[in-house]
Design a protein around this nucleic acid. Structure first.
Lengths: 207, 207
DNA sequence: GCGGCAGTCAAACGAGCGTTTGAATATAGG
DNA sequence: CCTATATTCAAACGCTCGTTTGACTGCCGC
């Protein structure tokens, strides 16, 4: 195991760069030659370490998705432990980890765009992968929401959570027309997004 | 002008097939060879009629986007003419044409997925194109909303409209986990989506 | 020291890409 | 009918793609 120039292993550097470039140009649009050049790694390294471009894409997903799931479930557990927790608390546990992942030092906003893209690709293979790795988390949150919104039947609750997920996905990818002003830090802009999403979603869920 | 086998011109057939395949595989993922083969048209026809793949993509957008803009502005004008129109009415004018376009006989759900993909591609060129052809529509709606929500300052209104746009975009692409039951017609499922989005958004905007 | 192994590398493979070309063919006007 | 214009077509262009190959390098255990 030779240590890589920047202190990260070849494999890690490929994953990081791939995440960025897939987010920027799409899975088909970003070539392995671009990835390996940006990572200062030999072209053959991808096939050596991951087997294929396809597998590399899956690895990019798995790495971040596992992290997001961990954070969301931990936040939900903390919130649910408090007997007086509110709808806003559960929304926070759902929304905050997703938006905060987009400002961690390493990945930047790259991964959440990759995630949004995966939805857009509408590829059944990827959707199945996401639902397999994601389904139980959504179900846990749905149960927590159901306890706080007993007046909603299951069907109605799922409709509304779908809308929350949509607004969150959109915000995660930073699609919106709201542009961060120069004098507002990234952290504070993100916090504003979180607060707006929570308030809006709580009103919609309760209506 | 030779008439094409199916009654549609070569140009129209390319546009229709391109829309479908771009939605399914992405702009980079769908090749001109796939498009021309599916359209039963010679490979060179794309470059003859559109100049380049890039221009073909723009045409796919322009065609549907012009239609959507027309419908939205017409609906807004109708609504705004009534002196007692409500927030729900304006939301309907914004949301309904978008979701209805995804069930027109010809295009099916293809274009809305193309649109969602364009957002995901996060390509500045496409974003600029969309904002150029779309900006004035959004501004008109923002003004209509501002009249009905005088308690919100401009900044706050834009934050909330951003959330509405996010939820709508997500719904347009039919990403959600809410799956249409076998016994519900496509039309009635769409109507349910519209009603849920309006109710949720109205509550969020008023909160 | 030396064999084995994990990793890196330059080079090449065949395939598919968007685009161009020039000839063939259909349509329309005088 | 004949010419001009518009369209279609098969073939080829140069290029980039993902993947494979085989030689080369550093390193650890024996």
């Amino acid at each position: 195991m030779r240590s890589a120039p920047s202190g990260f292993s070849t494999k890690e550097r490929i994953l990081g760069v791939a995440e960025t470039l897939f987010a920027r140009h799409g899975f088909a649009g970003a070539s392995l030659r671009q990835v390996t050049a940006a990572a200062k790694v030999n072209l053959a390294a991808v096939n050596y370490h991951f087997g294929s471009k396809e597998s590399l894409i899956e690895e990019v997903f798995r790495r971040r998705l596992d992290e997001l799931n961990r954070h969301r479930l931990a936040a939900l557990a903390t919130v649910a432990a408090r007997p007086d927790h509110t709808l806003e608390d559960v929304l926070d546990a759902f929304i905050r980890p997703a938006l905060e992942q987009s400002m961690d030092s390493a990945g930047g906003t790259a991964f959440v765009r990759v995630l949004a893209r995966a939805f857009a690709e509408h590829d059944e293979r990827l959707r199945k992968f996401l639902s397999d790795n994601y389904g139980h988390v959504l179900r846990e949150f749905a149960a927590a929401f159901a306890r706080l919104l007993p007046q909603l039947d299951k069907q109605e609750l799922y409709w509304r959570l779908d809308i929350v997920a949509g607004a969150l996905t959109y915000a995660m990818a930073d699609f919106g027309m709201i542009k961060r002003k120069g004098d507002v830090s990234e952290r504070s802009h993100r916090e504003q997004t979180i607060q707006h999403l929570i308030r809006f979603s709580a009103a919609g869920l309760r209506s």
